[in-house]
């Protein structure tokens, strides 16, 4: 219940209508959107029960490892109602053609593969919010100071997922496990996305805001 309440509203991409469509414009829009979403997601993390009790250093380490997984999971959940399209924002939906134009066809196809899994399972909002918190708590940072505290956080969230499934899906005792088994594809896709945006950063043609840059650098 606390995670459902903590879930942030969607934000708008607001692409500049005066700039003609191009790969640079699309990537600039996405990087700006990601930067603003990251601010929102850091605020969200503070509402995960148990997260604020971690040391500041461990909170930072988990976010530095897991931020892209959180961004992608949010895009995926927003996209579940659509077919072969990714809802980066309510006003910024990418289809195959736009993905091609932005040079994001491979990455967006990987994200769509994840969306397809959740669509098949009928992922619910309750499951989505817990899974997202689990992705953060389980982001496997190498810098954790108090791994027992992080383990306790994982156990609480894992417990919440099991409780939800026991009450809402008693017909499928393996549902929680099935959801957990989607996390490797999320990890793999996030790594791809980080790699892609790191190379865009190296090119230097797309302006990026400071928080997005800071977190990309934490992954480099």
């Amino acid at each position: 219940s606390l995670l459902l309440v903590a879930e942030p509203e969607g934000i708008f991409a607001m692409p500049d209508p005066t700039v003609p469509e191009s790969d640079i414009k699309a990537l600039t829009t996405l990087c700006d959107l990601a930067d603003r979403e990251l601010v929102v997601n850091i605020g969200w993390a503070k509402h995960i029960p148990g997260f604020p009790s971690l040391s500041l250093a461990d909170q930072m380490s988990l976010l530095q490892s897991g931020w892209m997984e959180i961004l992608i999971l949010r895009v995926v959940f927003r996209s579940l109602a659509l077919e072969d399209k990714l809802v980066y924002a309510e006003d910024y939906i990418m289809d195959e053609e736009q993905s091609k134009l932005a040079g994001l066809l491979d990455l967006n196809n990987a994200i769509l593969q994840l969306a397809k899994k959740y669509k098949t399972m009928g992922l619910e909002k309750e499951e989505f919010v817990v899974l997202k918190a689990i992705a953060l708590a389980n982001s496997d940072s190498m810098q954790i100071e108090d791994s027992e505290a992080v383990q306790r956080l994982q156990d609480v969230l894992h417990g919440a997922l099991h409780d939800h499934e026991a009450t809402h899906h008693p017909e499928d005792p393996r549902r929680a496990g099935k959801l957990i088994m989607t996390l490797p594809l999320l990890r793999q896709t996030a790594a791809r996305a980080v790699q892609h945006f790191c190379s865009i950063k190296q090119d230097g043609r797309v302006p990026m805001h400071k928080l997005f840059l800071e977190l990309l650098e934490a992954k480099a």
Binding site: I42, G43, M60, Q64, L211, E214, E217, A218
Partner: peptide, 15 residues
């Protein structure tokens, strides 16, 4: 830590 000053600041903010 100096390298991650925005994340640090956002986490410290009470809101």
């Amino acid at each position: 830590k100096e390298k991650h000053k925005i994340l640090h600041r956002l986490l410290q903010n009470s809101t």
